[in-house]
Design a protein around this nucleic acid. Structure first.
Lengths: 136, 136, 136, 136
DNA sequence: GTGGTCTAGACCACT
DNA sequence: GTGGTCTAGACCACA
């Protein structure tokens, strides 16, 4: 688990931690059932207060992404909440729209946008496969 | 100008206002040179503190998206700042990555994701064209 | 808003605060849309750290019972989440079972138990009506 | 003895164990004088640390509900501590109040609540009688 | 004025 | 060892 945290860009640190962990799960470097590093461990690694890390874990737990067992540790949840196809499309669609707005704002044309999209998907897949092969 | 604002979803109101205005510009319902509604007008319409609207305008001005002319009002900038192709790809790519993470998190498969992406592009174009035809 | 907090009984203070506020809402002394006292106000009243009160508010927000608006305050939610009749019966049933276990454990017979149950319902109603009459 | 334990709902495991055992006694599936399963047996059955089970037994012993005889095992106490009628009413009343708050919060009306209460009493009695007949 | 974030550090509960 | 609670206090963002 390598976390990429910026202390100066305005995005709350606890939020960045949560986002990085979600990404690790999405990409398969953290698997369902697997134990997360302890709060203190991460706090030491990225030199923030343990409370800040704990807050990130609390958020992830509230979203059902991890489960914490007092005295034992924090684990990636086995089950993911079921969600309807429509809701799913709506949530992802909102994020896509945000990218489209930005692309348009920056005068990126349609073909460049499509190329970028396919490239990012490929990068995502590559990352996932590396994790799978590494058995990690 | 219809602004879609939520008072309870945690996203700062000034930020939502700025985002909505950027979207209106991206989609062509606000054109370069056109005057924005006055701070008071918007404040009244969405019942927020005028300071909040003023802050949104300040942000937009700092980004070079609008220009304020003392005693006259606020206008959509004619020119857009040039940005290198790489910077552009990086900024939009980050937003795409966020959508990919969420899609994966929600177990959306690649084909559904692509379909959704193309659909959102089409919706974006449609909205732009309606605004163009309407001469608005 | 009078909060009844014990600093020594092992139940976390933030939890007691949340419980008391839920009770106030249940009983009508806090109405939908109404603003809660500020975090600092409650903190001063019961002499605890503002963070502790903030944590209680965060919990209530996560349960959808209140809504917080940055820079404005915290308000009782207007809408309550819809829940099926069965789920409702299950949740309340669990709490009733807990009372039955305790009653049995303390050798309280069925008639005394029923009397107590009706008495508590009456007390609850009385409290609600007082709040209604007081227009408070 | 079948224990129903959740590792993820925040309620301490030792507490859940103690609660389940109290319920078994209340309902008659564990009788005064009867021997409880050994700490190791339970620990193996629900896969928790034996220390956790031991803590539950310690709690039960402190409440006078079980007795530990060195080298022999743990047994359900023959006698139950006497408690005044008022204390009894207060303890059970508090639990009832909690159920009433929840019922109100979930918009359960008085008649549904009463029906549920009577149903739970009946279920409790049924369980007790089955244990009696089974001579268990 | 409101709530939010973060720190440093103490102490506790649970396994 | 794990995570949870709470404090005192600084500083920030928002309306």
């Amino acid at each position: 688990m390598l976390l990429n945290i910026s202390h100066v860009d305005g995005v709350p640190i606890y939020f960045q931690i949560a986002r990085e962990i979600k990404h690790s799960i999405a990409v398969g470097s953290l698997r369902p059932g697997e134990q997360l590093p302890s709060v203190r461990e991460i706090a030491a690694q990225i030199t923030v207060n343990p409370n800040t890390v704990a807050k990130a874990y609390r958020e992830l737990e509230a979203e059902g992404i991890v489960e914490t067992r007092r005295g034992t540790g924090t684990f990636v949840s086995e089950q993911r909440v079921a969600i309807s196809r429509e809701e799913r499309a709506q949530m992802v669609g909102k994020l896509i729209d945000r990218a489209l707005d930005e692309a348009n704002h920056l005068r990126m044309d349609k073909s460049e946008l499509k190329r970028l999209f396919l490239e990012r998907i490929r990068a995502f897949k590559r990352e996932s496969e590396e994790n799978r092969e590494a058995g990690k």
